[in-house]
Design a protein around this nucleic acid. Structure first.
Lengths: 229, 229
DNA sequence: CATATCATAATTGTCGACAATATAGTGCTG
DNA sequence: CAGCACTATATTGTCGACAATTATGATATG
């Protein structure tokens, strides 16, 4: 982590906000490695700010579960474990199922058309840069559905917590999956269900989509661990 | 809010932690009213602390969605709305369904026995103080199931976010429901399903349990609003 | 009288220093 | 040489003061 953390794109108003966003990206991208200790004086110095706003930023990082803090000891970037990843998948299977259902009930035709546009864009991306799609494109789609649910608390939970963790694991475990084409097809099915305002079907498809993804990831992790160990 | 906020029971290590807990209770119990503005100097003074740790506490309150903060403007206690409450119920229906399923899969016999004890205790409480049961007893049960899932991230999400919001709405909207006996029976059914390690059934029962509760609350709110408006 | 403008006051954001706690290293003892 | 105690160092927690921003209120103007 001897890299320029202080120049990373972001638009915010308070220093704590800015720094928080930069740190989020830095952690997700591994510039600050998982499990590493965070020194307040060092970081504050690196950003050229005081420890006050830095601590505020750390508070928010703790809230989105990117770091863990112990009183009088300090903060560490979370460690990535298979178990934690699987836990998140189960939660997503449940929550995004709900999101899809409510999206089918609450999305306007305009919203849905924009979803179509997104899918089309993704279809192009897949041919070019599977890695990018897998990291960000897929996330775009899922987040769009969440927002489509119009359930503001659900949207909040995602934005503050799961969003960053999902990105974190994607970047750090970053394994290219053969499931990308299949997943893309499933996205299409989900959008179809939403278009027909079939909440039950959308929920079923989304839950199964994420469940399949989880099983795939579990399999890949098992193989990978079997090799590295 | 001219009441003694500073003497409320809590055990923690850092000042920010202590104050955070006290504020959580104060907000839940309405000592600091919903929607009211929070003055940092005033509160810090009331607790006899500096603004530093107070701001740290406010950060955490924001994380558990008890207050909202705008940069350069300040913090307000969240306002309670019917829509928000319903959103939370949908999320609970989804998440606690998952929790019940995983609890059925992961709870030990010892855990389940303790659940039985809890139910027995509740049976006594119902006869004595329905109000207390409805506020805290019911919460105890649901939280116990969450913990039983052994899904640490799920437990975290509840502890930091939903737990306080549920209590908040219970206390502030505090309406006595005729559903208490019925709900208690449903709790028993859920425990039975968990005892048999029937995850699917436990999930179904828990989701339906919360759905029923939501519908009941919606009905009561409609009636109540019809009267007050 | 209502509205806009400006000066004042109050509140939030940020900083640097001090106190309390934990970590690291050294020396001592078995 | 291993393990423990103690000292020294570094880190975190807390405080009070200053800077930047926003809210308030008085005055002037249409």
């Amino acid at each position: 982590m001897s890299e320029p953390l202080e120049n990373q794109p972001v638009i915010a108003s308070t220093i704590a906000d800015t720094v928080c966003s930069k740190l989020q990206n830095a952690i997700v991208e591994g510039i600050i490695p998982a499990g590493s200790k965070i020194s307040e004086p060092a970081l504050a110095n690196e950003f050229g700010i005081s420890r006050g706003p830095l601590r505020e930023a750390l508070s928010r990082l703790e809230a989105c579960n990117l770091i863990e803090r112990k009183p009088n000891v300090g903060a560490r970037v979370v460690t990535l474990t298979r178990q934690h990843l699987v836990e998140i998948y189960f939660i997503r299977e449940s929550l995004e199922g709900l999101a899809a259902r409510q999206a089918a009930e609450n999305m306007s035709d305009k919203d849905i058309n924009e979803l179509d546009v997104l899918l089309e864009k993704h279809q192009q991306q897949i041919k070019q840069d599977q890695s990018y799609y897998q990291k960000e494109g897929d996330m775009d789609f899922h987040f769009r559905i969440i927002k489509g649910s119009k359930n503001s608390h659900l949207i909040d939970m995602f934005s503050n917590d799961l969003y960053h963790l999902i990105r974190l694991y994607r970047y750090q475990f970053g394994m290219v999956s053969k499931r990308v084409p299949r997943a893309f097809v499933e996205h299409g099915q989900i959008v179809d269900a939403i278009r027909q305002h079939d909440g039950e079907l959308a929920q079923f498809l989304m839950s199964r989509h994420i469940r399949s993804s989880r099983i795939n990831v579990e399999k890949m992790l098992d193989e990978h661990l079997a090799i590295t160990d």
